[in-house]
Design a protein around this nucleic acid. Structure first.
Lengths: 253, 253
DNA sequence: TCAAAAGTGTTAGGTGTACACCCATGT
DNA sequence: ACATGGGTGTACACCTAACACTTTTGA
């Protein structure tokens, strides 16, 4: 609820009379970013190395404080720009994941963090913008334990992205403006960790109106060899009907 | 992120040296509850009437402040118990929806709210517990505009619940411990607002292992007339494979 | 005997899966 | 030629939707 007169229990059981902004222990509100990309068929995550305690030397998700006059989403967008050095975040998919609020998740103070998932096409080299600590792409597999509860946040992000690939057109967010169906399929295979049947994948994608649209006449050689692949753009649709379910989707209770 | 040394921009651009807890404008962190139930085939929402400005006289979602030493989920559970007067929240489905953080969503101060969706079986009469304002069940349709951004929160909750009915066993959370398949179907029909084919619904549910399990020998008359319906319990499964898609699921871009 | 609600059967058409096959290109 | 990756065809199992039909109760 918003600050209301109903059950207006400020810490200590007193009502926040007149909404004295400093009458109770403040919460810090931050954003955490799970930024994913696919480079060379490998799922990669943007991480920063911590220099101080706690968790000094560990990798952590990028993020930062939400400023007084911005929304959490605006904060996420700002932090992402600072961390990657990217000026234009066009083609970026940014989506709220969930909020993590365990009282002891940061040993120093009470921090409530709104986590966001961002998907980037191609790998913009993470040039640390100015004062920010250098951010780096690391393979999603082969990560030691991260700082704070960031392991869990990252796992939640991965799970969410995997699920949304099934029933949305999200996969194109991993792809550059022009891509082949093979590249699109590789997104699914990389995130899901399973191989897909190429002919069936192709039919499924093309049968979904608005998922992709072909760029007439364009083609590109992919592996140096083989038939040049037709190029596609992301279409206008956002949802998949019917969904593109992962194989062996049975038995995941 | 947690409060870290990376981009540690406290309001005003200064780093929060030593994490002075009062060095910056505090955020209030609250929870909002979208509590849904189905009574007599009608979707109902638990709401409280506001007595003070802003939005005096309007209906609002129940909720309250997150206390310093509890998680947002614990706060949601506590507020729900206070608001409904229910001591045992067994059989309750409580799930984080998303976080709303627009800077101007509460005109009095900066309030970041973590919204939760709760589903209750049957209608526990909302006996206002002690000091809390009286909460009431209102029909989901036929709601005037709510206070704050609660219209949007409620719409998001409805959308989320509708979507989760498709691929999870969530529907049993609307039902009492023992229910008929007709009642279960009514949950789907009420939330989705569409009629379903009874024979096919029945087969679908029974073919999903762990969705429901029959109580041997038990039966109940439902409409005063007609054949008594067999009774079922919720099973152990949580996900539906394959999903139970809403009809006319096409063309929802 | 009829209406109402539960429950069963049947069938036509669509969807997903698996796999065989052809096409274009570089080496 | 042959390997490599793109693209097409096809057959079969399965699922779904639609609807006819039977069963059990109260009025």
């Amino acid at each position: 609820m918003c600050a209301s007169e109903n059950t207006p229990r400020a810490p200590g059981g007193r009502a926040p009379e007149g909404y004295d902004k400093h009458a109770f222990e403040p919460f810090a509100v931050t954003v955490d970013l799970a930024v994913l990309t696919i480079r060379a068929g490998v799922l990669q995550v943007l991480l920063v190395e911590r220099g101080q305690e706690p968790y000094a030397g560990r990798w952590a998700l990028p993020g930062g404080f939400v400023l007084p006059h911005e929304s959490a989403e605006a904060a996420a967008r700002r932090e992402l720009a600072e961390e990657t050095g990217l000026a234009d975040l066009t083609g970026l998919h940014l989506e709220q994941l969930r909020t993590y609020s365990e009282p002891d998740r940061d040993p120093r103070m009470r921090v409530v963090s709104v986590a966001y998932t961002a998907l980037l096409p191609d790998p913009p080299e993470p040039h640390g913008g100015g004062d920010a600590a250098q951010a780096q792409w690391l393979r999603y597999n082969a990560l030691g334990p991260l700082a704070f509860d960031h392991d869990r946040i990252l796992a939640d992000a991965h799970e969410r992205v995997g699920a949304k690939l099934e029933y949305t057109c999200l996969a194109t967010s991993f792809c550059p403006p022009e891509f082949t169906l093979g590249e699109l399929q590789q997104v699914y295979e990389t995130v899901w960790g399973t191989a897909l049947d190429r002919p069936n994948f192709r039919r499924k994608v093309l049968a979904t109106p608005g998922f992709v649209e072909q760029i007439p006449g364009a083609a590109r050689l992919t592996g140096g060899r083989g038939k040049p692949a037709a190029l596609y753009r992301a279409g206008g649709a956002t949802t998949l009907h019917p969904p593109l379910l992962r194989p062996t989707s049975e038995g995941r209770p």
